[in-house]
């Protein structure tokens, strides 16, 4: 594995125990400049992990707690009148940063969500008559509570599509939880240092981009995406009735980018179908729209993706 990646992971591991899959997912997002949606019940170190990662990367980090009464100007910024100068001044919002943590994004109403997602897409903010380009790297890590909980606004499918990956965070193992409890009770406070400079991060990105991907693997990825749209052609009759809308072209783009990062994190210089298998659920699970029949029978997108991976032959 790349030395820098090991350093970053070690720094994050000072405050976060376990949750390797989430850390890998966040690093992939970082290396591919893709936005990440993290879903999990409260208390699973979602915010701590993102905070630790930003410190380890030496990036500017800002956090916005989304609430039902949040306004778009609370995120983007606003024009404020300065009585001393007798003019309007731009007050930049928390979106002017490198790493923005949108905590509990589904607690804010749709207008705030769409304001943020517009910035995610354009990487530009317009306040009054002035437009501002956001300083790269800019990426958003949004956390959300499972929609079954009270007082949340589910993100529309079109907006979910803008997130490169959706990471579902589960509970730690018993051993990990014991270690967490011990660390907290001993009040050990670890300081996280920036182990990667901005230039080094750019180098890492270039290295990821240079990971080799064979044409056969590329075709395999397209076959996987295509199988979600035309399941009958791949002998997937058993899941055909469960899929209402297949994956969008953004999925293909994001798989192309993310698998290279996945291979890179696994210490390889080439992409294989194994890398795709490791990452495909995170990229596809929030973009497949299932039918009511699937919901009624308790079928999840993860189960459908498993069937698709099983059905499409690897090169």
């Amino acid at each position: 594995m790349n030395e820098k990646i090991v350093k970053i992971k070690n720094e994050v591991a000072k405050v976060v125990i376990g949750q390797e899959k989430m850390i890998d997912g966040l690093l992939i997002g970082l290396l591919c400049e893709g936005h990440i949606l993290i879903e999990g019940i409260p208390g699973l170190a979602k915010t701590t992990t993102v905070n630790a990662l930003s410190q380890a990367l030496g990036l500017k980090f800002k956090r916005v707690q989304f609430t039902p009464d949040l306004l778009p100007s609370d995120i983007l910024g606003a024009e404020i009148y300065d009585p001393h100068q007798n003019e309007f001044k731009i007050k930049q919002g928390p979106v002017f940063t490198n790493l923005l943590l949108a905590d509990e994004i589904n607690r804010a109403p749709a207008k705030v969500q769409s304001a943020l997602l517009e910035v995610m897409q354009e990487k530009q903010v317009t306040i009054g008559e002035e437009s501002f380009k956001l300083e790269p790297p800019f990426f958003v890590m949004a956390t959300q509570n499972p929609v079954e909980q009270e007082g949340v606004y589910q993100l529309p499918e079109a907006q979910l599509d803008r997130f490169m990956m959706k990471l579902v965070v589960g509970y730690n193992t018993k051993e990990e939880e014991l270690e967490i409890a011990r660390r907290i009770s001993n009040k050990k406070s670890e300081t996280i240092s920036a182990v990667v400079t901005h230039a080094e991060l750019e180098t890492l990105k270039r290295e990821v981009a240079s990971v080799h991907m064979d044409e056969e693997v590329e075709k395999y990825m397209i076959e996987l995406v295509s199988a979600t749209r035309n399941p009958h052609e791949y002998g997937l009759e058993e899941v055909a009735d469960y899929i209402q809308f297949g994956a969008s072209p953004r999925v293909s783009i994001d798989i192309f980018k993310a698998v290279k990062a996945m291979a890179f994190l696994r210490g390889k210089d080439y992409v294989s179908p194994v890398d795709i298998a490791y990452i495909i659920k995170e990229i596809m699970r929030h973009r497949l729209i299932l039918t009511y029949e699937a919901e009624a029978e308790g079928i999840t997108t993860d189960q459908v993706i498993d069937k698709i991976v099983e059905a499409v032959a690897i090169p």
Binding site: A277, Y278, V309, E310, I314
Partner: peptide, 13 residues
């Protein structure tokens, strides 16, 4: 080996 890889990937990564 390819068949086995495919099977193991489908079973439990």
């Amino acid at each position: 080996t390819k068949e086995l890889l495919e099977v193991l990937m489908a079973c439990d990564k």
